[in-house]
Protein backbone atom coordinates (compact mmCIF):
# COMPACT_ATOMS: atom_id res chain seq x y z
CA UNK A 1 0.00 0.00 0.00
CA UNK A 2 2.79 2.36 0.99
CA UNK A 3 4.85 1.47 -2.06
CA UNK A 4 1.80 1.86 -4.27
CA UNK A 5 1.27 5.35 -2.85
CA UNK A 6 4.76 6.47 -3.70
CA UNK A 7 4.52 4.92 -7.17
CA UNK A 8 1.26 6.79 -7.75
CA UNK A 9 2.79 10.02 -6.51
CA UNK A 10 5.76 9.58 -8.86
CA UNK A 11 3.49 8.80 -11.81
CA UNK A 12 1.33 11.82 -11.06
CA UNK A 13 4.34 14.12 -10.90
CA UNK A 14 5.63 12.65 -14.16
CA UNK A 15 2.30 13.33 -15.85
CA UNK A 16 2.07 16.84 -14.43
CA UNK A 17 5.63 17.78 -15.36
CA UNK A 18 5.94 16.03 -18.72
CA UNK A 19 4.71 18.88 -20.94
CA UNK A 20 6.57 21.54 -18.93
CA UNK A 21 9.85 19.66 -19.13
CA UNK A 22 9.40 19.15 -22.88
CA UNK A 23 8.55 22.82 -23.25
CA UNK A 24 11.63 24.05 -21.41
CA UNK A 25 14.06 21.50 -22.89
CA UNK A 26 13.15 22.29 -26.49
CA UNK A 27 13.28 26.02 -25.90
CA UNK A 28 17.06 25.45 -26.02
CA UNK A 29 16.81 23.50 -29.28
CA UNK A 30 19.54 24.27 -31.76
CA UNK A 31 17.28 23.71 -34.72
CA UNK A 32 14.02 24.86 -36.23
CA UNK A 33 11.59 22.38 -34.65
CA UNK A 34 10.91 21.95 -30.91
CA UNK A 35 10.61 18.16 -31.18
CA UNK A 36 13.07 15.28 -30.76
CA UNK A 37 15.83 14.72 -31.51
CA UNK A 38 17.48 17.36 -29.36
CA UNK A 39 20.07 18.86 -31.66
CA UNK A 40 22.15 20.81 -29.20
CA UNK A 41 21.98 23.63 -26.72
CA UNK A 42 21.34 27.13 -27.98
CA UNK A 43 20.01 30.40 -26.60
CA UNK A 44 19.17 31.76 -30.04
CA UNK A 45 15.40 31.54 -29.53
CA UNK A 46 15.55 33.53 -26.32
CA UNK A 47 17.65 36.08 -28.12
CA UNK A 48 15.07 36.20 -30.87
CA UNK A 49 12.00 36.68 -28.67
CA UNK A 50 13.65 39.29 -26.46
CA UNK A 51 14.31 41.27 -29.62
CA UNK A 52 10.70 40.85 -30.78
CA UNK A 53 9.07 44.25 -30.30
CA UNK A 54 5.48 43.07 -30.71
CA UNK A 55 5.99 40.40 -28.09
CA UNK A 56 7.56 42.79 -25.60
CA UNK A 57 4.74 45.30 -26.12
CA UNK A 58 2.21 42.51 -25.54
CA UNK A 59 4.06 41.58 -22.36
CA UNK A 60 3.85 45.15 -21.11
CA UNK A 61 0.14 45.30 -22.01
CA UNK A 62 -0.52 42.10 -20.11
CA UNK A 63 1.24 43.35 -17.00
CA UNK A 64 -0.54 46.70 -17.16
CA UNK A 65 -3.99 45.19 -17.60
CA UNK A 66 -3.33 42.55 -14.94
CA UNK A 67 -2.28 45.04 -12.27
CA UNK A 68 -4.81 47.75 -12.98
CA UNK A 69 -7.79 45.43 -13.34
CA UNK A 70 -6.79 43.42 -10.26
CA UNK A 71 -6.37 46.56 -8.16
CA UNK A 72 -9.81 47.77 -9.23
CA UNK A 73 -11.39 44.39 -8.59
CA UNK A 74 -9.71 44.15 -5.19
CA UNK A 75 -10.85 47.56 -3.97
CA UNK A 76 -14.43 47.08 -5.17
CA UNK A 77 -14.57 43.49 -3.94
CA UNK A 78 -13.20 44.40 -0.52
CA UNK A 79 -15.62 47.30 -0.04
CA UNK A 80 -18.57 45.20 -1.17
CA UNK A 81 -17.54 42.30 1.08
CA UNK A 82 -17.23 44.71 4.01
CA UNK A 83 -20.69 46.12 3.30
CA UNK A 84 -22.36 42.73 2.98
CA UNK A 85 -20.56 41.19 5.94
CA UNK A 86 -21.17 44.08 8.30
CA UNK A 87 -24.35 45.90 7.39
CA UNK A 88 -27.68 44.14 7.30
CA UNK A 89 -29.04 45.10 3.89
CA UNK A 90 -32.31 43.91 2.42
CA UNK A 91 -31.80 41.09 -0.07
CA UNK A 92 -28.19 40.55 0.94
CA UNK A 93 -28.28 36.88 -0.06
CA UNK A 94 -29.41 37.89 -3.52
CA UNK A 95 -26.77 40.61 -3.75
CA UNK A 96 -24.07 38.15 -2.74
CA UNK A 97 -25.31 35.74 -5.38
CA UNK A 98 -25.28 38.47 -8.00
CA UNK A 99 -21.69 39.48 -7.19
CA UNK A 100 -20.48 35.87 -7.31
CA UNK A 101 -22.50 34.97 -10.41
CA UNK A 102 -19.80 35.84 -13.01
CA UNK A 103 -17.68 33.08 -11.48
CA UNK A 104 -20.10 30.47 -12.82
CA UNK A 105 -20.25 31.89 -16.31
CA UNK A 106 -17.75 30.93 -18.99
CA UNK A 107 -15.26 33.64 -19.92
CA UNK A 108 -16.34 33.19 -23.53
CA UNK A 109 -19.90 34.22 -22.68
CA UNK A 110 -18.73 37.21 -20.64
CA UNK A 111 -16.53 38.26 -23.57
CA UNK A 112 -19.30 37.80 -26.11
CA UNK A 113 -21.77 39.76 -24.00
CA UNK A 114 -19.32 42.62 -23.57
CA UNK A 115 -18.44 42.56 -27.25
CA UNK A 116 -22.12 42.82 -28.15
CA UNK A 117 -22.61 45.68 -25.70
CA UNK A 118 -19.52 47.58 -26.81
CA UNK A 119 -20.51 47.17 -30.46
CA UNK A 120 -24.00 48.47 -29.79
CA UNK A 121 -22.73 51.34 -27.67
CA UNK A 122 -20.19 52.22 -30.34
CA UNK A 123 -17.26 51.83 -27.98
CA UNK A 124 -14.14 50.88 -29.92
CA UNK A 125 -12.08 47.97 -28.66
CA UNK A 126 -8.79 48.58 -26.88
CA UNK A 127 -6.68 47.30 -24.04
CA UNK A 128 -9.13 48.99 -21.65
CA UNK A 129 -12.18 47.15 -22.94
CA UNK A 130 -10.31 43.91 -22.21
CA UNK A 131 -9.43 45.37 -18.79
CA UNK A 132 -13.12 45.93 -18.08
CA UNK A 133 -13.72 42.27 -18.86
CA UNK A 134 -10.91 41.24 -16.54
CA UNK A 135 -12.41 43.24 -13.68
CA UNK A 136 -15.70 41.41 -14.31
CA UNK A 137 -14.04 38.01 -13.86
CA UNK A 138 -11.81 39.03 -10.94
CA UNK A 139 -14.35 40.99 -8.93
CA UNK A 140 -16.27 37.87 -7.77
CA UNK A 141 -12.98 36.23 -6.84
CA UNK A 142 -11.76 39.19 -4.76
CA UNK A 143 -15.20 39.61 -3.22
CA UNK A 144 -15.50 35.93 -2.30
CA UNK A 145 -12.03 35.73 -0.77
CA UNK A 146 -12.46 38.94 1.22
CA UNK A 147 -15.94 37.94 2.32
CA UNK A 148 -14.83 34.49 3.43
CA UNK A 149 -11.93 35.98 5.41
CA UNK A 150 -14.17 38.34 7.40
CA UNK A 151 -14.73 36.22 10.47
CA UNK A 152 -16.13 37.19 13.84
CA UNK A 153 -12.63 37.99 14.96
CA UNK A 154 -12.38 40.92 12.53
CA UNK A 155 -15.95 41.88 13.16
CA UNK A 156 -15.30 42.33 16.87
CA UNK A 157 -12.10 44.27 16.25
CA UNK A 158 -13.97 46.60 13.90
CA UNK A 159 -16.69 47.05 16.48
CA UNK A 160 -14.07 47.90 19.06
CA UNK A 161 -12.48 50.46 16.72
CA UNK A 162 -15.86 52.07 16.07
CA UNK A 163 -16.52 52.08 19.79
CA UNK A 164 -13.23 53.93 20.31
CA UNK A 165 -14.30 56.65 17.91
CA UNK A 166 -13.03 55.54 14.50
CA UNK A 167 -15.02 56.65 11.46
CA UNK A 168 -15.94 53.99 8.90
CA UNK A 169 -13.05 54.99 6.65
CA UNK A 170 -10.65 54.78 9.60
CA UNK A 171 -12.03 51.37 10.54
CA UNK A 172 -11.44 50.14 6.98
CA UNK A 173 -7.97 51.62 6.72
CA UNK A 174 -6.55 51.00 10.21
CA UNK A 175 -8.28 47.76 11.20
CA UNK A 176 -10.09 45.79 8.49
CA UNK A 177 -7.57 46.06 5.68
CA UNK A 178 -4.46 45.32 7.80
CA UNK A 179 -6.17 42.41 9.52
CA UNK A 180 -7.25 41.00 6.17
CA UNK A 181 -3.91 41.73 4.51
CA UNK A 182 -2.96 38.08 3.82
CA UNK A 183 -6.35 37.31 2.26
CA UNK A 184 -6.35 40.54 0.26
CA UNK A 185 -2.82 39.89 -0.99
CA UNK A 186 -3.81 36.37 -2.01
CA UNK A 187 -6.88 37.70 -3.83
CA UNK A 188 -4.80 40.31 -5.64
CA UNK A 189 -2.15 37.79 -6.58
CA UNK A 190 -4.71 35.32 -7.91
CA UNK A 191 -6.43 38.08 -9.86
CA UNK A 192 -3.17 39.19 -11.42
CA UNK A 193 -2.44 35.60 -12.40
CA UNK A 194 -5.86 35.06 -13.95
CA UNK A 195 -5.83 38.34 -15.81
CA UNK A 196 -2.24 37.91 -16.95
CA UNK A 197 -3.03 34.49 -18.38
CA UNK A 198 -6.51 35.15 -19.70
CA UNK A 199 -6.99 34.55 -23.40
CA UNK A 200 -10.53 34.65 -24.72
CA UNK A 201 -11.64 38.00 -23.25
CA UNK A 202 -8.39 39.65 -24.30
CA UNK A 203 -8.69 38.03 -27.74
CA UNK A 204 -12.24 39.21 -28.40
CA UNK A 205 -12.09 42.60 -26.71
CA UNK A 206 -8.78 44.02 -27.96
CA UNK A 207 -7.99 45.06 -31.46
CA UNK A 208 -4.42 46.28 -31.92
CA UNK A 209 -2.95 46.57 -28.43
CA UNK A 210 -3.09 42.84 -27.71
CA UNK A 211 -1.91 41.04 -24.56
CA UNK A 212 0.71 38.31 -24.27
CA UNK A 213 -1.58 35.24 -24.51
CA UNK A 214 -3.12 36.69 -27.68
CA UNK A 215 0.31 37.37 -29.14
CA UNK A 216 1.42 33.83 -28.29
CA UNK A 217 -1.77 32.57 -29.96
CA UNK A 218 -0.86 34.32 -33.17
CA UNK A 219 2.67 32.86 -32.94
CA UNK A 220 1.09 29.39 -32.76
CA UNK A 221 -0.65 29.94 -36.06
CA UNK A 222 2.67 29.82 -37.86
CA UNK A 223 3.27 26.31 -36.53
CA UNK A 224 5.61 24.76 -33.99
CA UNK A 225 8.65 26.83 -33.17
CA UNK A 226 11.24 26.82 -30.37
CA UNK A 227 10.51 30.55 -30.11
CA UNK A 228 7.10 29.72 -28.64
CA UNK A 229 8.84 27.34 -26.24
CA UNK A 230 11.15 30.14 -25.20
CA UNK A 231 8.26 32.53 -24.51
CA UNK A 232 6.42 29.84 -22.55
CA UNK A 233 9.51 29.01 -20.53
CA UNK A 234 10.12 32.67 -19.71
CA UNK A 235 6.53 33.17 -18.58
CA UNK A 236 6.84 30.03 -16.48
CA UNK A 237 10.07 31.25 -14.92
CA UNK A 238 8.59 34.63 -14.02
CA UNK A 239 5.38 33.14 -12.58
CA UNK A 240 7.20 30.51 -10.57
CA UNK A 241 9.57 33.13 -9.16
CA UNK A 242 6.56 35.19 -8.13
CA UNK A 243 4.94 32.17 -6.47
CA UNK A 244 8.11 31.32 -4.58
CA UNK A 245 8.54 34.92 -3.43
CA UNK A 246 4.91 35.06 -2.31
CA UNK A 247 5.35 31.79 -0.49
CA UNK A 248 8.43 33.06 1.33
CA UNK A 249 7.36 36.59 2.18
CA UNK A 250 3.61 36.45 2.49
CA UNK A 251 2.53 33.04 3.68
CA UNK A 252 5.46 32.14 5.88
CA UNK A 253 4.92 35.02 8.26
CA UNK A 254 4.38 33.92 11.85
CA UNK A 255 0.71 34.03 12.73
Amino acid sequence: MRLLSWAYLAAAYAFVFLPVVVLVVFSFQDGRLPVPPFQGFSLQWYDKILGNGALMTALWHSALVAFVSSALALVMGFLAAHALARVRLPGSVLLRGLLIAPMTVSYLIIALGLLTTFNQAGISLSLWTAGIGHVVINLPLCFAIAYAAMGDHQKNAERAARDLGATEAQVLWHVSAPMLAPALAAAFFLSVTFSWDEFIIAFLLTRFDVTLPVEIWSMLRSGLSPATNAVGSLVFLVSVSAVVLMEIFLFRRPK
Binding site: N156, R159, R162, D163, T167, H174, P178
Partner: peptide, 20 residues
Protein backbone atom coordinates in the same frame (compact mmCIF):
# COMPACT_ATOMS: atom_id res chain seq x y z
CA UNK B 1 -25.90 58.54 18.59
CA UNK B 2 -23.34 56.15 17.04
CA UNK B 3 -21.03 54.07 19.28
CA UNK B 4 -18.11 56.33 18.37
CA UNK B 5 -19.92 59.43 19.64
CA UNK B 6 -21.20 57.90 22.87
CA UNK B 7 -19.33 58.49 26.13
CA UNK B 8 -19.10 54.71 26.47
CA UNK B 9 -16.45 52.17 25.59
CA UNK B 10 -16.66 48.41 25.69
CA UNK B 11 -14.40 45.61 26.86
CA UNK B 12 -15.39 42.80 24.52
CA UNK B 13 -15.71 39.19 25.49
CA UNK B 14 -12.99 38.09 23.07
CA UNK B 15 -11.10 41.35 23.78
CA UNK B 16 -11.06 42.27 20.06
CA UNK B 17 -7.48 43.50 20.31
CA UNK B 18 -6.01 44.58 16.98
CA UNK B 19 -3.56 41.78 16.20
CA UNK B 20 -1.44 43.90 13.85
Amino acid sequence: VAPAQRPTTTVFQDYALFPH
